[in-house]
Design a protein around this nucleic acid. Structure first.
Lengths: 144, 144
DNA sequence: CTTCATCTTCGAGCGCGCTCTAAGTCAACC
DNA sequence: GGTTGACTTAGAGCGCGCTCGAAGATGAAG
């Protein structure tokens, strides 16, 4: 009665490849799904949900080992919600600090970009006074 | 007259290892620096600046090949500022979209965390009505 | 019956970005 | 003189996360 899907469907829905799905299974990230009589995998909606969650963790940079731990907790069943939550919270903190660092580093790149900015006459026609360098101080675009 | 620094100093200032610095040099990311009579590298302040810039590009996820291209433009000298700027701008766009994606994915993780949240009695004592599940709909913490 | 498509397993291979090893040179210190 | 420590080189190795190849089973279509 409950719906189940062949691997091709999971590929279509998750964006993972069949190879990667099988790799995740080998790696202990996802439950070995049920099989058809011919050996073909049948993924349930629950499997799908787990896989989707895992891809989010992966997309936010969680290493395989962390995903494995989280998956193990889920497989254990009810009773360890605090642990699952702690794991996710710690990951979240790491992602947030990566985001902060990333934005800081990007800001430096932005300044570099400004240095290279064409000398746009902010009023009237451009091309006048080509090397005035008055807007931004410390313009030294020729070294890096 | 101009200051110059041994590799250890560059290590201390940039956080890169000596191995990595030499690797970057081999990879064409940084100019082979001047040498002392005994063969030891002497990095100039200009070198330092370039290296620092490159680390920012790296930190924001630019692959080695992109850094190599940027470095090559810088080494070419004046006249290609537009190209350098274009390269950095494209990188910037990529970083921004990665940031967006990252935040979106993190938001999903956040929802997961909320699902696992301990049932904090938002008023009075906690522990009452343990499985009411009224605050957040679609609470199904036992599957993933 | 042949071909094509979809799946299976097992295990090897790869791309990236370092990271490390081994062997050598030189200067300084005890 | 011997040892320590900072540097040099060329090249091998590694960790991660896939990614792919080869060979085989099964089912449907022509």
């Amino acid at each position: 009665m409950t719906e189940s899907y062949p691997i091709a469907e999971v590929v279509a829905r998750t964006g993972l490849t069949a190879h990667t799905l099988r790799y995740y299974e080998r790696a202990g990230l996802i439950e070995p799904p049920a099989r058809e009589w011919n050996g073909h995998r049948r993924y349930t909606e629950v499997d799908l949900g787990m896989i989707t969650t895992l891809t989010k963790l992966r997309a936010t940079g969680m290493p395989i080992e962390g995903m494995r731990r989280y998956a193990a907790l889920c497989r254990q069943g009810p009773g360890n919600e605090a642990e699952r939550r702690a794991l996710l919270l710690e990951h979240r903190e790491q992602v947030l600090s990566r985001l902060d660092q990333l934005q800081a580093d990007l800001a430096v790149v932005d300044r570099k970009i400004e240095m290279y900015a064409p000398v746009t006459g902010s009023e009237a026609d451009s091309g006048r006074m080509e090397n005035l360098c008055s807007g931004v101080q410390s313009r030294q675009p020729f070294v890096a």
